[in-house]
Design a protein around this nucleic acid. Sequence first.
DNA 1: TATGAATGAGACTTCATTCAT
DNA 2: AATGAATGAAGTCTCATTCAT
Lengths: 192, 192, 192, 192
Amino acid sequence: MSPRSQKQIEQIRSQSIKKILDAAFELIAKHGYEATSISQIAKSAGVSKGLMYNYFDSKEDLLKELINNALAEGDRLMKEAISADPSETLKNIFVWFFNELRKHPKQWRLITELMLKIDKFEFVSEVAKRKMGDYVVFIAGLLEEIGFPNPKEEAQLISGLFDGIGIQYLVVHQDYPLDEMETYLINKYCNY
Amino acid sequence: MSPRSQKQIEQIRSQSIKKILDAAFELIAKHGYEATSISQIAKSAGVSKGLMYNYFDSKEDLLKELINNALAEGDRLMKEAISADPSETLKNIFVWFFNELRKHPKQWRLITELMLKIDKFEFVSEVAKRKMGDYVVFIAGLLEEIGFPNPKEEAQLISGLFDGIGIQYLVVHQDYPLDEMETYLINKYCNY
Amino acid sequence: MSPRSQKQIEQIRSQSIKKILDAAFELIAKHGYEATSISQIAKSAGVSKGLMYNYFDSKEDLLKELINNALAEGDRLMKEAISADPSETLKNIFVWFFNELRKHPKQWRLITELMLKIDKFEFVSEVAKRKMGDYVVFIAGLLEEIGFPNPKEEAQLISGLFDGIGIQYLVVHQDYPLDEMETYLINKYCNY
Amino acid sequence: MSPRSQKQIEQIRSQSIKKILDAAFELIAKHGYEATSISQIAKSAGVSKGLMYNYFDSKEDLLKELINNALAEGDRLMKEAISADPSETLKNIFVWFFNELRKHPKQWRLITELMLKIDKFEFVSEVAKRKMGDYVVFIAGLLEEIGFPNPKEEAQLISGLFDGIGIQYLVVHQDYPLDEMETYLINKYCNY
DNA sequence: TATGAATGAGACTTCATTCAT
DNA sequence: AATGAATGAAGTCTCATTCAT
């Protein structure tokens, strides 16, 4: 019995948790929440099914953690977009959005999928409401600084556009004029 | 010879089918496809589980019928929007969209949910692609007639907006400025 | 209401029964008893499911009738084999057997399948026992007339051979030396 | 690290597997494959339905394991029959066959039943073909050594006889002259 | 005589979760 | 902390049989 220090234990814990969360995110983003089983996640993470219940109360709880992690990551990236010039900042946001969509379409799929399950997962609804509001306010501020007319309404439009373009790109994929839309939106809103 | 006439049988059949489709639509739109079981649908429709398989080959087949019905209804309503004046037509489309969203938000939820399951339901993807393309072309034509600049790109934006506004309204519901967006969009595109 | 005569009704009955029995035999011989549903039989016979229960108490009862019919037909064919010369008669039996196997292997499959279900279908066991005994006695008589040694035991062997060759031919099919076995057996037993 | 040692787990697994296979064999051999449900097997084995799918992918997979086990056992017993004297070897085979039939008639029933389902279970057909060929060649070799005329054809007959006697014994049971046939065959082929 | 809509029991299978070790 | 055997509820689907007409 080698007694492990508190620190070692904590390290092991966070390592296992990370492995589980990574595997879960990968699989759930790819196949959807319902279509991904606990067994699959455990196998992919290289841990036992039992261990998962050591760290997460349930499959739903695991999802919750997943979402929170992803949102925190999203916030971090959003902050990097901020520049002194509001046009520049808005452009960065557009570029960031389109690149995310190109590189991680499955993650967008997951976010959208979950937003539709508001009556099953209340926490998703809560988080989404808050985030959505924040973004709209932030973008509205940028548009106002830029001097774009009707900044509040246009910010709401842009926010909706992100979700809408996301969905359509997921469905149509190759046939969606992603590059053209990116250029067009940047021209329209940032070179005003 | 026949104890029940052809007509009687057809009537019984369509009544049962209607009961099933109605119950299925109600439940699936509300809770999602996966979350709705055949048992629930049968119970809600007031028929036995077995009968469902008299009329639909599988749960997926039932969904297919559901979608086809909904799309046919959507097309019908879309056609009613057409007027001689392109601005008027576009306005009708906006009004139609926002009213649909207000009256049948669950229906939009279902459509969006299914569009995300392109891996599982190819037929949904196929239909969605086609419809999406049709709508964009149609709206682009209207915008061109109206003389709106960049009609193709703007039509693509509007198409995306419909999906985006739809999803956001589903999430935020009461807090979404649906009326304001309706007025704003109509002013922006139809009173150009 | 055109009153149908007793005779007409009887004719209709036997026609329907024949259609059902033919279709049932065809399908059950081809796919097996369990794998054939009442619905399939009804559709193939061109009658309603309900009508089947007018003439047969159950699926099992239908099977019973089927077997009895087939056995009667078998008896009839067997009788045709009888000749004044016992060697000739035995040869006819061999020829008849191998031809049956070639032309209607599925029927043999069915007979064998049912013989294995003796605990499910008692009547099969009863009938099979009786027939088997009859055949052995008959063939033993022929062998005795021919002067073949150990006629009783050899008759038992031949009876078993029929079943065994049947099974093996069903399994191996193309690879089974059916022609060679026919020639060999006829030579062995009939040209003694 | 592991709470149960590798060995313990393996033991638990094989115990459960054995319980399941034994119960499955017992029931399927007795009542047939279709007539035996997973529920029955689970109950008889004293495990839950779910556990069965921990060890076998499907009902068919379970059957496959069953067959492979039985065949391996059969091969092992066959090998024990081999002696330096071909007559002795052949006699051992006859004795082995008749004893098997006496002691495990249900097992023969199962093998025969499955051989007839070549459409449904390809793997059975494959195995049966191979085994049958092997046996015929082996017995033909023995007969040749013994100096029995037409060894190839007679080997084919004996192979067929095994299947035929098997099935007839299953049907007639008490009334089948099993002992007499055994004596007769051994005398005929081994004391040549 | 004839129909086929309707039933309900039961089939196979999946999977989140528990628990002894 | 970690394992994975085991459970049981629930899911989709099939089918022999009944019955109102």
